[in-house]
Amino acid sequence: MAIQSPAELKMAELLVEALNLEDIDAKDIDPEEPLFGDGLGLDSIDALEIALAISQEYGLQIKAEDESTREAFATLKSLTHYVDSNKG
């Protein structure tokens, strides 16, 4: 597994908290594994939960219509990067 950056660990903790992933240790989420589909197996309800948690934590609104959103939700790494470069 790739090594988490501190920002990725913080995002991983937010995911675990927002998505009831109590059986998963935030430290064990591979930054480069897919979040949806196989990997963590998240679904559209989770996407909504993640968007909500991110808007509350970082004040950033996520939009599905942005081309970049699909890529952003791909992995922990891309999500962290997206939030980092878009938050106010």
Binding site: A47, L52, Q61, K63, E65
Partner: peptide, 9 residues
């Protein structure tokens, strides 16, 4: 629309 911002737009 799915996300709150999309619904708003």
């Amino acid at each position: 629309p799915l996300f709150p911002q999309d619904i708003y737009d």
